[in-house]
Each structure stands twice: as structure tokens, then as C-alpha cells.
Design a protein around this nucleic acid. Sequence first.
RNA 1: GCGGAGGUCGCCCAGCAUGGUCAAAGGCGUAGGACUGAGGCUCCUAUCCUGCAGAGGUUCGUGGGUUCAAAUCCCACCCUCCGCACCA
Length: 973
Amino acid sequence: MSQTTKQIEEKWLAKWDAAHIFEADPNPVKQKIMVTFPFPYMNGPLHVGHAFSASRVDAYARFKRMQGYNVLWPWAWHWTGQPILGASQRIAKGDQTYTRVLREVDGVPQEELQKFVDPNYLAQYYTNEGKNAAKRIGFSVDWRREFTTVWPTFQKFIEWQYKNLKELGYVIRGTHPVVWCPKDQSPTGDHDRQSGEGITPEKYTLIKYKLDENTVLPAATFRPETIYGITNLWINPDATYVEAKVNDKENWIISQEAAEKLKDQEKTLTINRTLKGKELIGKTFENPLTRDKFPILPGWFVDTKTATGIVYSVPAHAPFDWLALKDLQQKPEIMHDFGIDPQIVLQIKPVSIIKVDGFGEHPAVEIVEQMGIKDQHDSKADQATKELYKKEFHSGKLKSNCGIYAGKSIREVKDQLVTDFTKLDIADIMYDLPEQVVCRCMTPCIVKILSDQWFLNYSNPAWKEKAKEVISQMKIYPETVRADFYAKIDWLKEWACARTTGFGTPVPWGQGWIIETLSDSTLYMAFYTINKHINQNNISPKALTPEVFDYIYHGKGDKTQITNATPGITVELLDAMRKEFLYWYPFDLRNSAKELVPNHLSFCIFHHAALFPPQHWPRGIGVNGMLMVEGQGMHKSKGNFITLKSAIDKYGADATRCGLMMGAEGMDDPDWRADNVNELKNKFEALTNFATNIVITPPQTASIEQIKNSALERWLQNKLQYRICEVTEALEELKTRTALQTALFEVWNDIRWYMQRKGNTTTAANAVALVDTVKIWIKLLTPFAPYMCEEIWSQTGETGFISTAEWPQFDEKKIDFEAEEQENLIIDILADTQNILKATKITPKQLVFYTAATWKWQIYLKILEKTKTGETRISDLMKEFSNTPELKPYLKDIAALVPKILKTATKLSTNRKTNMIKIQNINEQQIIQNALNFLKDKFDAEITVYSEDDKNRYDPKNRAPTAIPYQPAIYIQ
RNA sequence: GCGGAGGUCGCCCAGCAUGGUCAAAGGCGUAGGACUGAGGCUCCUAUCCUGCAGAGGUUCGUGGGUUCAAAUCCCACCCUCCGCACCA
């Protein structure tokens, strides 16, 4: 980063600060806009990913501010949760890899690092750094409203929020299975795992088969409907099982491992004895539903580490069961080892209970044959199982032997069946992990059912409905995300909103619980509105009673009574806070990356639906993609982590902002490419020089009245009007990429064209037009590159800030079709001539253009009009022309001309046709004549223009007759 | 598995809702030229193939279909990316 860029940034940052231009207070005569960005979590520095989402917010905020809105953009810092503590602990433990990352990636100085053993210090360090970076990047934030989520004043707000949610019945008590580390005594989230990322507990149904009156054999299954097709149980003869009293009721026989697991799943177990599986082989048991009796057979494949270690066999529908049975039936003598008559095994036949398309009586038997699976050790057996389960689940129907469920599809009865069986007390549930999960502390994890857990009841249908109402009245950028929001609202269920460890606000009614981190950041945007007063008046947390918040946010209660009860808050102050809330709320835009849609943003919607009336529901939510770095996801471990500070240091604030916003919009993931950002940095230097040169060249002394704009100036102004529209419309839709591209490149290209066209000399009209254009141009760029624009703005002699200057207005008076079409003529001539030169490879010495004869215009315009309205036939046109007396002499030529014009007409947009018809004839000869110097320069050749009507024209190849309006004939020598 | 997004001319990407204005915007890259002591600055020009006259040919994941006309509409298929919970 060049010294000057840095100086410019520091200069304007100081000026903005001194002038307090981003501090926003209620102003009844001005319309407000409140924009927000989810507060970043402070266990590390702000990075370019944060900056991407936030830059979009800032661009919108700056745009709206320039449009004259009273814009509030507040900011705060998220400290709630485990990671700050975790980071601090790792440092305390002397984790070298971790401290190295902090030094090298985060850029933390060694002397600071030592103090990070204090988590508060760590978080405060990153908060300070973060604020610095957020300011330097140029975010137009009102910092008077800043806070962190551990400030006691903020925590009072959270307490109020949860008190209300609970009273409204949105917080409930319940149980929930989690992956749990027995050593840490806490849930083990994905980030805390050594292995087993993404693994979640799976729910098994246990069917309580009866060994005898008091003893049950709980067999685990994902397919309880297959109870009707059971033929036997499988028990691993070599494994150790236990007999245990469960919940002081039944005797269960389960694997030793299962007994340990169930202790953490809300069951009490007293183990009476251990036994070998062998002991059970050959015994019979009863299906509790049908009272039928079946044998217990040896299954060496049974894994006692999975669920209960007891499996029931459904050979008609489970490939593994069929294979195991087949293997056994092929070697029935093995049964002698268990003292059992082999006949028991040989008599077993698969029982078909599911009809599924593409299969006959016994799908499992068929699929095993089809895939040529030899035995249970064949690796294809797994695949066959998955395939068949899927097929049966989606399209299978239960047969007549399935009791009251006969005829139903598996998909529709599954849940019902589980509920029914549980009621009948023939089924229970158990959770287990499909793969091993190991905690960072190297302890294997288990599933624990947390009881007495607090939940936000997002399953509540009435709440869901209300949340959807919030969505339906909201603006969503881009609109495609709306469907996603509806889907997520439906999908969300109870959310455990309290934890026992980490930073956060204690649950007001529960000892030892803390409001979980995603659950304390759902409504806080409302806190911004009043926190200015809390900060400025140093209001004590004690004064922030529920009654105070009730008054501020709900207008409830009597203000005199409330303030009498709360020293430190006067009636005026209370009123001011209430008014401030009413003025700003709701927020108009909250923008974040798409990963927050299923959680944070949806929660935010839920909580607003619960606690605020419709007039305070969010008005707009923006979503954008996830930032990639050089085509890859950004991770500290990948070594491609870019902090915001380092980006600004290297490329400057403007290039960083624009490099990010240029990357993508909508749901696409932007890609940060250092080369591109560097290119932008250069571009901005070039732009600054370019623009400065224009604005410091004083327009010649001619007075405004004397300045006569040529078509060229009118063309430029006309173009600019379109650009203003495009940028404005794109920004309104938060299409920051489109807006930036147009504002930067398109306008620049327009100006370049103009400068080329006007040639080397600069007239007063030229100078004035250019200065005007540049001023509008940099205004359009201000939301994106504010520092550069302030600097150029000041060069123009303006004394105010461009940040608060008026956004360019579309001016209909400056729309000039004629100037546009005239210029199109030149552009087309240029392109056509170049095309010919390319094809012929001629180096031109002389160029001659022949403009169309006057009579041709009548035909041209007529055809335009006809083609505008619909299909046009040549014969009809010819008929019409032959009936026009003044065209009589040219009828022969017209016959050739009409198809040609018709063809060019189809290539014109309706818009242009309309304009051309409005304009009627243009003086092509004059227009080309005016552009003669330009064309000469371009082609480095002599150029002459004749009209086709000119009898004395120089036309050695007789080209002139091919001329048509807007397409002069060309002769090249 | 469930839910969502997407596959466009070397790359990033616009266009697709309202079919013809689309060989398809813009940026990057590349090539040539200008400027310069020099340039990794900047400016101009070119950049699917063919073409000695402003044209033609073949393209928008694949295969079909609708239509006078399809990158755009319909159907099928292939592929890629993202989220899936107690965690920020």
C-alpha cells in the first residue's frame, strides 16, 4: 500500500470522526433506515469473510445516507459461549501449534499472547483490534451504541427477553440426546472432536421380545415394522451379555456395552449377573405383539458395541439376515455345538410382509441373488441392505399379515407404529452412534440424554405460523432465499437454549444454566436503539429492570411509577429510550452469509415474531455466499486465512472493500483473489489520477450560457442517466456486485469513449461536461470506495463530505434519444469498417462513406414501424410502397432494399425502433462530418462523406446504392 | 438421506422470469500497438472458427421435445457446491 493511500485513509477517517457524520439520532423529519450485521464472535480477529458481508451492509448504508435517509448502523461484539474460554485454556496449557497460529495468522504480539490466559483479556484484545479494523475499512458505524454480550447491561436485556419468552410459553423443559464426553462432562460438538465429525446420535427402536414372563430381550432396529416378519433372534454366542433390572421393573438381557450406555439414557440399571451369549442360543422367545414363538440362533456377526447387541432376523427383507440364515442352513451341524437340533434352523422360512415394486415375495433373497452375494462377509451385502431399505421405505406397502397397518406404506406408518408399540409397552428407544466419536481429550464419546434441559420450542406450530408471517412481510435479498426460510422454519424443532459452561447470561430462573450463544443473539438489534443512552448516562445494570424494558419495548406500565422504583433513570431518559426504539425499530436490513439462514437468521425471525408486534418485525434480510480464498474455503489450518487488518495494510481499504464486493452477489460464493484485488488497487490509483486531472483543469472562462453542448455532451449526459438508474436499482436490491461494476467500469468506459471522440482539444463545453460527469461518477462510487471518492471530491473544490452528499438523481430531461442514435451511427460505422478491414486485410489509404438517399428513409421508418407491431410480409410492404406516388421512380430499387432492411430491423430492439421512429430522419452526412477527426485518427486514412443523392460523388465501385439509413455504404481504398 | 443453490465463449461471471435486440455485457488473462530511459503503470486494438466488403459456420452440462425461432420454455439424465443442530 502506497504511503499516499494510507495518508488519505487516515485523513478522512479522522475527519469523519471529528464531524460525527455516522452518528445517527432520531430525527422526526427524516425517514430512517437501520441496517445491521450479526455481531462477530471475538475469539479471533475480523477477517475478510466478515468484511464481505459487512461491506455490503456498509455500501447499502452509505447509499441510503446519500439518498437523504437518516441511517443507523450499529455494531457490537459476541463473547457468549465456549470458544473464547477454550482458546484461553489452550494457551494456558502451552499449546504450541495454537499459539503459533495466533502469532502468525492473527498477528498477536508475544507480550500480549501471555496475557491471553485470561479469557476476558483475550476477547477484549480481539475486540479492540476488530474495532480498529472495522473503522479503517470505512464502515459507517455509530460507535456510541457498541457493547459486548458480557456487559451486565446487555445481560439485563437478555434476562428480560427470556423472562418474556418463558411467560409466553416458548421456553419449555425437556430431554435431548447429545454426543457426550464422559471425561469433560459436556456435549462434544463437531469442533471439539478428534474424530467422528458430523456424527449424530441415531435412534433405535427396541422391540422387547420376551424370554419369559420377567425377562425381555430388547432387539434393536431401525425398522420396527419388520416385527411382523421375524423368524428368529441373533445373539453373538462369544460375547458377554448382562442381565439387569431396568428402571426397577423388567429384567433386560443386553450386551455389556449396552448396559453402560443405557445408564446415560435416562434408565436405571442394576446388573444382576453377566453371561455368555452362548447360554441363550437355542432358547425360544415370544413376539410380544403376536405371541408367536421363535428360536434364538447364533450370530457371530452381531456387534455388541452397537445398540443392545441383540438383533432380530427378518430374512425376507434384510439381506444380512437372509445370508446369515443361509450360511447356517448350509452348515446345520454347527448347531450341535449348542446342543440344538439342526432341524430348528432348517425349518425356518422367510416371512414376506412388504410388497415392493420390482421384487417378488422375498426381496432380500432376490437382491442377494441378483448381486451375486456369496455370504455375509461379502462387501456387497452392505450395499444390498442400503438399497433394499431405501426402496422398501419409499415405495414399500405392508401386506395383509401386518395387522392394522396392512396396506399402508412404510413411510406413512413408521412413526405411528413406534408410538403405538411404545404405548403397548412392547417397544422402547435407545440412542447410539453410527461411528465412533472421540473427543479432543482423546476420550471416546457416548450418547447422553440431557434431562431438565431448557428448550426454545421452535416446534410450536403457532409460533412457526407467526414466524412465517414475519417472513411473508419481509423484503429478502435475493428473493430466492425466501423459500429456503420457509423450509427452515418448518424444519426447526426444539432448540436447547441453555448450557452449563462458557461465557453468557445466566438463565434468570435456572441455577447453573447460561443462555446458549445462538439464543442470546436473536433480538439484540433492539438493544442498539437504547444502548446509546445506557452508555452515555452510565446507567447501572440494576436500574434496567424488566419494568423498564417493558416500558421501552412494549409501552407497558406507568413511567412515573417505573422511574420512581428505579433510581438512575429519569422519566425523560425513559421516554427518550422509548422514543429512540420507536424511531429506529424495526431494522430495515440485516445481512449475513447464507450459513446463518438455518440458525441465527431464522431464530431472529422467531424471536421477533414472539416478542414484538408486526410493526416491529424485521423489514429486510440479506443473504450472501461464503467467501472463498483463491478458490478454497478460508481456514486458519489451510494457511489461507486473511485478516481484515492485513488486507487493509496490503491493498488499502477501498480496494479491499471493492475486491470483496466485486467477487459475487446473490447466493454465489465470492472468491478473494489477491491478483484481482491488487489490480483494483492499481485501477484506483489510475482512476484518481484520471479524475483529478479532469477536475483540476478549470473549465475555460466561458460562462455557462455561452457553453453550447454538442451532441457528444448530450450523449454523455444521456448515458450517465442510464448508469445512475442501473446503479441505484442494483443497490436497492443489494446487488452490490452489479452496482459496483456499473459504477466503476461502465461509467469509466463511457467517459473514455467520450474523451476519444472529443479528440485532443478540450473546449469549455467539454470541460464542464467532464467535471459534471466525474462528480456524478465518484458519487456513484462512494458507497464502495469512500476514501478515494472523498479525496477526489475535495479536489473538485467541494467543501462538504461526499459521504453525506446527495445521491445522483435520474434526470429525465437529460435523456436524449437523438444524441444516442447519432452516436450509435458512429459506433456502427466504426465496427462495420473494422470488420471489412479485418476480412480484407487492407491497410486503408482512403475511406469513403455514402449516406442513404433521402427517399430511403421513408421506407426504412415504415418497416421499423411495421416490424415493431408484429410479423411483416414483404409482399404487403411492396404493395404499400408501389401505391405511394413519390416512391414510384424507385420501385425497382425498393424490391431489393426491402428484404435487406427487414433483416436489419429484426436485429434492432423495440426500444431503439421506437426511438428511431420518434427521431425520424437524421442528418447522417453532418454527423459523420462532425466525427471526421475521430475517424481519421482511428483509421489513419483520408475520409470523405457523400450522400447517395450527390450526383458528383466520388464512387469508383458504385457502392452508394447499397446504403441504407443508419448503415452508410463504405468504400475502402 | 433431507433441504437448498448451480453448471455460459481460457478464468471469474451477466443474460434465462417476459423466446427473436445473443457469437452472448463487464472484469481478469493473453496478443499486438502507443506512451516511456524502462516498465510488472496507463491508454488503444484484438481475443470461438472461417472469410480480400460490412458475411457465414459452430457454440451456452448431456440427450430429447415445443416453436417460424431456444442460452432462455418443457421432459429425462449427468455433474458440482452448500447447510443439517446444542456449535459459533
